[in-house]
Design a protein around this nucleic acid. Sequence first.
DNA 1: TTGTAAGCGTTATCAC
DNA 2: GTGATAACGCTTACAA
Lengths: 374, 374
Amino acid sequence: MYQLARGMPECKRLHIAAGVVTSGHQRADGDAVKRGSSTKTAKLADVARLSRVSTATVSRALTLPHKVKPATAARVNQAVETLGYVAHGAARALASRRTRTIGAVIPTLDNAIYAKTVQALQRTLEQAGYMLLVASHEFDAAVEVRVTRTLIERGVGALILLGTTHDHGLLRMLAAHQVPYVLIWSLDASGRLPCVGFDSRAAGERIARHLLELGHRDIAMISGITAGNERASERQQGVRAALAGRGLALPRERVVEKPYTLQAGREGVRELLAAGPAPSAVICGNDVLAIGALSECRERGIAVPGQVSITGFDDMEIAAVVTPALTTLRFPAEDLGALAAQHLLARLAGREVEMRTELPVELVVRESTAPPSK
Amino acid sequence: MYQLARGMPECKRLHIAAGVVTSGHQRADGDAVKRGSSTKTAKLADVARLSRVSTATVSRALTLPHKVKPATAARVNQAVETLGYVAHGAARALASRRTRTIGAVIPTLDNAIYAKTVQALQRTLEQAGYMLLVASHEFDAAVEVRVTRTLIERGVGALILLGTTHDHGLLRMLAAHQVPYVLIWSLDASGRLPCVGFDSRAAGERIARHLLELGHRDIAMISGITAGNERASERQQGVRAALAGRGLALPRERVVEKPYTLQAGREGVRELLAAGPAPSAVICGNDVLAIGALSECRERGIAVPGQVSITGFDDMEIAAVVTPALTTLRFPAEDLGALAAQHLLARLAGREVEMRTELPVELVVRESTAPPSK
DNA sequence: TTGTAAGCGTTATCAC
DNA sequence: GTGATAACGCTTACAA
């Protein structure tokens, strides 16, 4: 019914608890909890009846308390309490034409950097009385269009889209439905789309320049998959640009593209070594790849940083703990989330905002690893 | 406006890009994208008019395609296409009394294990045509009640709650509104609440027994914060039970409770060492604490596993890469998410389900680290 | 197979 | 301040 162990062949494993399931096939409903007295859910009219006012007044008492006499408000609240009344969101949304919901479309939550972004978005929006509706597409453009449509259908008042690469119809759809949106993580090159993010290309240049300044000349890269992911491709472009500035290139055999997993980081090192002699430094598309790469180097007896310098992008607190050999470029996802949420809230409130907000990235150097002198 | 660097004092840091923001204060709305031809959003009636059928038929064509003549369905779809029609979810929910939405209440997404769980839930539910509405409470019980109420208001058809420790009123509220729910990650001790999760107590016992079998007798623990978190407290209880089985105890000075952060893991080691001689093994409440603990040991020149054996709970692929000295107890969050979603879907479909599903946990031994012989 | 029309539970516009 | 009442956009008997 569900998988137990996935591959991790290098480890000895002992299983405990063999998928125990209690029997009985009971209907697992709430008979363990007493039902409320009435079987039907209370509605606004019930509250109105009990508090001897009209539904209009109840509605006001609930959403604009200052517009009713304190005494009435109290009676209404009392009734709400005793009936356990909870508003019907759909009805409310239909009548008021507002849902106080904002949607976010991201690749996946199974990546710390995106999960952190979402958590920050959620926190900021919730404080402002909005709810965040998250949808992930797992790097499938078609799915992205589908889930975005679903969010619009759900009546989101605004949308947060991760990245600047999107199906053209997607943006048209947003325009047609007049859904305000903001792109995050990347910056729109055309300068015409609202965005708050990082300059990935500059980041790539920065990290490569750092290595160049240390004296590295033979640099390789384990990049993320660039197709449909401008963050990954821009980082790579930046690296190439920095190298080009010194008359260097990133030849075919010095670049591999991999998904963001540890295993891929290991494979990356293997493939680079299979394709040629060890480079003096490897730039990894993100922290996860970098950790995987480090591990593979260790297993192969390559002293890091003695022989190879590993460098990565993204926030990597773990890396700081793990090894002194890693330099990373940190993208503060929490700040990004908070800022993006504020951007949208401001626009929804009719305030003027910057079209484009660039967040700073910081280079975290754990140890200066010059290449071995030849 | 937003924070730049947070503390990471042990690293040299260079800043690049100083919060650049383009000026102009333009209204960041979609003037970059052409608006659809009509300014008002198309509704069902518009589609009906264009396709020359009644709204009822359009509705059927859209939700029960097999109930209309293929030719009409085609006309309707054509109209939908040309108008860029997207259903109004609130209206639909109000009329049909179903939202095809399921809610999940979790502590935070900023924890890989919960984020993974949510991602798995989302994937499974989306395949079944449901949308997942996520709310996090960041370990605040009052917030949990509030967000749960919001979810009910939003009309979720069912709810997934993380953990078994909840405000009593919360469960009553669910019963009153007849919202089916399932508790995940932990197993309800009373056996009366539907749940799918792991046996944390058994897990604690198992990991402690593992160390005992290796010959460790002086065991310490860096536990998670146990207040309001039965996962953490049950793990600790299990450890105590295993020790008690050998006539051993976990005295005050051998336990510290910490939040799940790397820094806390470091502090944990410091506090344990300040309170007494080094234990031969440390059990950590989760992987993050364990990595932090490992790092502190290294910095202090404590050879791991030479002198201290570090052991942790949770899935920790990173740990496997980082060090051979760590043993972990793996909780497969993806399986949990998928299973929990299936449980709820089955119930919504009126099928019988197990009240209680226990998932297996597995011990991943990276190296057998016996204590140094005294 | 399709159309008619009565809701669904709120909010919002008026009067009072 | 409060009360009628008409929307809001869709689904779904019931009829045809």
